[in-house]
Simulated assay, not measured.
Amino acid sequence: MSTETQFDRLVPVGDTHERDVCKTCGFVNYQNPRIVVGSVVRHEGKVLLCRRAIEPRRGFWTVPAGYLELNETPEDGARREAREEALAHLKLGDLLAVYSVPHLSQVQLIWRAELLDPGAGAALFGIGEESLEVALFDWDALPVDEIAFPTVHWMLGHEREVQRQGYRGPFSNPGVR
């Protein structure tokens, strides 16, 4: 006898979307958006970027960011990602942006952040497990042709806008109000 669950694609009673529903027990297998958390990290007028050591977009530059873990606050997740990818400790500031990436079922929460001195002569940042390289860039020297994802371009542009015009609340996808 097989214990494999078989699902039908249908709209459960009281719902508005098609879902995978178990033929045997009626279990509804909800698939919800993935939450990505991260930060645009600044230090002495420069921005911290990580060259990805993993796919997708291995070898391209990004801000420290990744998926939120279960039982973790978004703020703690953003700090954890900076430690994992750049061995960096952060002081989080304002929420810079909330981006929607529907084709990947992602919602991205991105903070403004500053590097914290870890003390005891430790480096401000280093190469984490998921990075090939980590560096501080002058705004005029960003590797714009080697940025990993469109949202990273948005983040960097939104951070520059904040620096020029002040913070005006979280940004969203360009062209969305």
Rank of each mutant, 00 (worst) to 15 (best):
A86Q: 08
E85D: 11
V134A: 06
F27S: 08
D20E: 14
R177L: 12
A123I: 02
V36I: 15
L115R: 03
V101F: 05
F7W: 09
W61Q: 00
N32F: 09
A148L: 04
R112W: 02
F137G: 00
G175Y: 05
E85G: 00
A148W: 01
C50W: 00
A122Y: 01
A122I: 01
R9T: 12
R79P: 00
D94F: 05
Q106V: 04
C50I: 11
D138L: 08
D117G: 02
G121N: 08
D8Q: 13
D15I: 00
Q106F: 13
V41R: 06
R79H: 04
T151H: 11
K23A: 10
E161T: 10
P64Y: 02
V101L: 14
E159I: 07
A86W: 06
S105M: 12
T3L: 15
Q165R: 15
H43C: 08
L87Y: 03
V107I: 15
G119K: 07
G157W: 02
C25P: 03
P102W: 04
M1T: 11
P102E: 08
L90G: 10
D76V: 03
M1I: 11
E84V: 12
V40M: 09
D94K: 14
L104Y: 07
T24W: 07
R42L: 13
D117W: 09
M155H: 04
L10N: 05
G166V: 08
A122L: 10
M1L: 12
R79K: 14
I35V: 15
A148Y: 01
L115H: 02
H17T: 10
A123P: 09
W111C: 06
A97W: 10
E72N: 04
V21N: 10
A82P: 04
D145L: 01
I54M: 11
D94A: 14
V162W: 04
L92M: 12
C22H: 09
V63E: 04
G77R: 01
W61P: 00
S172C: 13
P118R: 03
I110W: 02
G175C: 07
G121T: 09
L142T: 00
L92C: 11
F125Y: 15
L92P: 05
I35T: 15
G26M: 08
L48A: 04
E84H: 10
E69V: 07
H89I: 05
A78L: 09
L70C: 06
G45S: 13
E44S: 15
L124C: 05
G14C: 06
F27A: 12
F7P: 02
D117A: 06
Q108G: 08
R42S: 14
A122P: 00
M155F: 06
L109M: 14
T5M: 12
S172P: 00
N71H: 09
L132N: 06
